[in-house]
Design a protein around this nucleic acid. Structure first.
Lengths: 335, 335
DNA sequence: TTTAGCACTCTATTTCTTTGATTGCTAAAG
DNA sequence: CTTTAGCAATCAAAGAAATAGAGTGCTAAA
């Protein structure tokens, strides 16, 4: 691809992102000060190479998925990281509030600033370690199990006590569990519990308390649940690509059935851009999903994602997303 | 209104609920075995009385808001409470799982069975009483405050410890707070704390610990947050009244901005039906909101609501909603 | 009070026409 | 070899006109 062809591709993407209308040779010709016929020749080549396409025989050109990809790889990725200039976001990060609250606010602003759907897939506590297990009696036949991790996450589960358990015995069970599980990673708890019941000297005590042990496991499993926050679909739905009511409904259904989380890329490091059909879900084939992952110092991983029409302002959005992910990661480092 | 006119109104509502198309005199005439001209005369009277209306000069009739209201008051309210026959729901209520989980499942099924948006505005713990306050150290300069209510709700809040606090002093503060607040209703905690700081002998100890006290108040305030669950918008959006893309977008926006909770009727006892313009929000003027409240034995109130097009199957939905609210209330009684 | 008959109204659908933007191709100019 | 002007061809989008069909209101007779 010649330098001029690359320039034309860039202009087509930029203009199309702005107008949502196919771009004709005349518009580009005016910018580059050549005749439209020249641009048409070049466009012909770009189309041959599958970087742009027509919506019908005599329409202007729109970028193809390959075109967007080229645009992102060569133009956006080479942008200097403009780490500043996102003043509104700095305000949020500097206010020193609750971590979850900061993330929510940042995600809200992100979706508002981009007219896309923003998603935070929070780090879960799967790799945290057990700090303390407690039991608090509520009534004569009910108690509350409380589990605390070394990072201050708390989960609780109510249990029913049967007649044949006395308080002393329960205290013994809890002591035992504490002894056994403190400093165990949440991810290993279930395994360890089952093993100990089979093999250690405490099996007599626990064996007849299977329901209690099950309640524990259930309480622990809550830690592993991924915490997410999704917002801004309503902003996005006013984009012209959602003028088609079928697409709109399909999109809402996808969100409500939590299918949208399937296309968030949690695996890759750094930024990941999935354009159109690169997303597995059919309803998302006109959308781009950009995911930016970050790591917490306790080995968990979080992801900030943005879902919008393939025609989105990559040049602005990608640095912004990087910026936000970096700042959220910082929130987790501080402790 | 004569008996026959009432019958015609009922038939118009029933047919319109089924077909979503204006009902002509011919359709009714066939059911009642009279000529369409007779029905037209009667319809003229019903229209005069504002129970039905035309969408244009030569269209069939649709029920007006007044018509729906009459239909509900005279026909639906007099239905025998068919407490049984909702087998799918019984299954959910009988499975003996977590209370929140049961509510979620019931709400999910409710929205699926009705193609409406279902909302649970859960009872909060505002009137519960403090059972126990605990502090668990996490690191040398961080600790976790845990508050437990007499109904087993748990809330926690992380606090940072400054250098000048030693563990002993903290234990003393916690003991004091426990002594002071146990059995205090959550709703009175803040007030009581402030009062005691001003007047009691402990003011010296607490005065210099204002940030800690603030953290406590924040932890307590979490109890008062209303817990809600909303689902099934995507089912509803496939209804023909949402073929208009503007309405659809407006509705989604209303949900996403949490405005929809403004129209849930939490105040009235029993069942409340708000038809069309009876809802304050403009975007909801073609919708009906049915709310069914229940009381827990600890003085809290919960609401199950259903939002759908005014053209909804009231005869089926109203008993169903009553049924579900009754069963959820039962869940709260059992303890 | 009910009904048959008929003119009238309005929507929804289809078909046709027009407009305008854009392309590809060709041949001439640089 | 590249660029450009010119021109016919293509197609979507918008508008206009024609048609079909469902339903109403009114009148006069049963």
């Amino acid at each position: 691809m010649t330098k001029r062809q690359e320039m034309i591709l860039k202009l087509i993407v930029d203009e199309y992102v702005k107008s949502a209308e196919p771009i004709g040779s005349k518009a580009i010709a005016e910018i580059l000060n050549v005749s439209s016929a020249t641009i048409r020749n070049e466009m012909g080549i770009l189309e041959e190479l599958n970087y742009i396409e027509k919506t019908h025989t005599s329409s202007g050109r729109v970028p193809s998925e390959k075109g967007y990809r080229y645009y992102i790889e060569t133009i956006v990725k080479n942008l200097d990281e403009e780490t500043d200039g996102f003043f509104e976001f700095d305000e949020i990060f500097e206010q020193g509030a609750d971590r979850d609250e900061i993330i929510h606010e940042a995600i809200n602003l992100l979706s508002e600033a981009t007219n896309c759907t923003a998603i935070s897939l929070g780090p879960n506590a799967y790799h945290s370690k057990v700090k303390k297990i407690q039991m608090v009696p509520i009534t004569s036949h009910q108690a509350l199990i409380i589990v605390i991790t070394n990072f201050g996450h708390v989960e609780s589960k109510q249990i029913n006590l049967s007649e044949d358990m006395d308080t002393e015995e329960l205290v013994k069970v809890i002591d035992l569990l504490n002894e056994m599980l403190i400093d165990t990673p949440i991810s290993k708890v279930s395994e360890k519990l089952h093993y100990e019941i089979q093999h250690s000297h405490i099996k007599e005590l626990l064996k007849y308390r299977e329901t209690i042990v099950d309640s524990f496991i259930e309480a622990f499993s809550k830690f592993a649940q991924s915490r997410y926050y999704l917002t801004g679909s309503s902003n996005m739905l006013y984009q012209p690509e959602f003028n088609d009511i079928h697409k709109l409904r399909e999109f809402i259904s996808t969100i409500e059935n939590n299918e949208i989380f399937k296309i968030v890329d949690q695996d890759s490091e750094g930024i990941s851009v999935k354009i159109g059909s690169e997303n597995q879900i059919t309803a998302m084939n006109d959308c781009t999903v950009i995911s930016s992952s970050y790591n917490t110092h306790d080995g968990e991983k979080g992801t900030i994602s943005l879902v919008g029409p393939t025609r989105m302002d990559y040049r602005r959005i990608i640095p912004l997303l990087k910026y936000i992910a970096r700042h959220i990661a910082k929130l987790y480092e501080e402790e």
